[in-house]
Design a protein around this nucleic acid. Sequence first.
DNA 1: CGTAACGCCTGCGCGC
DNA 2: TGCGCGCAGGCGTTAC
Length: 272
Amino acid sequence: MPELPEVEVTRRSFEGRIAGAQIRSVAMGKPLRWPLGRDPASLAGRQVMGVRRRGKYLLVDLDDGSLLLVHLGMSGSLRFAGDLPEPGVHDHFEMVTDRGTLRLHDPRRFGAVVWAAHEADPVAHKLLQNLGPEPLDDGFTFEAFHAGLRASRVPVKLLLLSGKIVVGVGNIYASEVLFLAGIRPTARASSIGPVRARRLHAAIREVLARAVERGGSTLRDFSSADGNAGHFQLEANVYGRELQPCRVCGTPIKLLRQGQRSTFYCPRCQRA
DNA sequence: CGTAACGCCTGCGCGC
DNA sequence: TGCGCGCAGGCGTTAC
């Protein structure tokens, strides 16, 4: 479920409450995508300093300079509360602190919690080093973005998903952003000129920023770590709307497959 | 090197 | 109602 906005909303929903908390115990359930990388029990006594985000990874900073990298995968969600129900079969990570319990619920187990000694640790480095710029930071400049587009012959939608020229754009937002920019998802990235590149750059920032403001409205089921549901105000223009009329021109929305994944677009509003 | 497919899992909705 | 199938928001790894 989580693309960048949902991860950021999750982060904001518990960062302030968990910062300063002392870890009492850590327990793992079924295996996640990668092993934790150290004995969970050995984390007892550490203090949580804060929670950052890089792409779709959450970085839980501990007082000894080490960190926990948390990824929600396709089906993960975090809860942080003083009073949680008994762990269920899909709860695979639990960190009990003096301020509450942080728990990862992840039925498909594509998510992960990985310990790294520090940010330059090869373990952390490997996961974070290839990430492109953050779309909501000033480092996400139009110039670099356009240069990235020009350098790739891949269909623009796949390039957006790759995380090479910008991170955090998942399968839903990729379709939505291309619709807003009026760009055909199959267009070669290198064929996109400055005018459309500018529109795409702006659309990425606007859509993601708005989704974060709205509380991570992913158009489906999402709830942040405090248990609040996403708002759902961000209606999809194209995602999941195959054969339904385009909200702008009425043309039926089309569905196609790119890289084994669904892409939705309006054949009239998104030419070339 | 860049690009494309694979696989990790479970749950859900659909058509029969 | 039950069953099998295809699909699902990610992404590192493997194979060209």
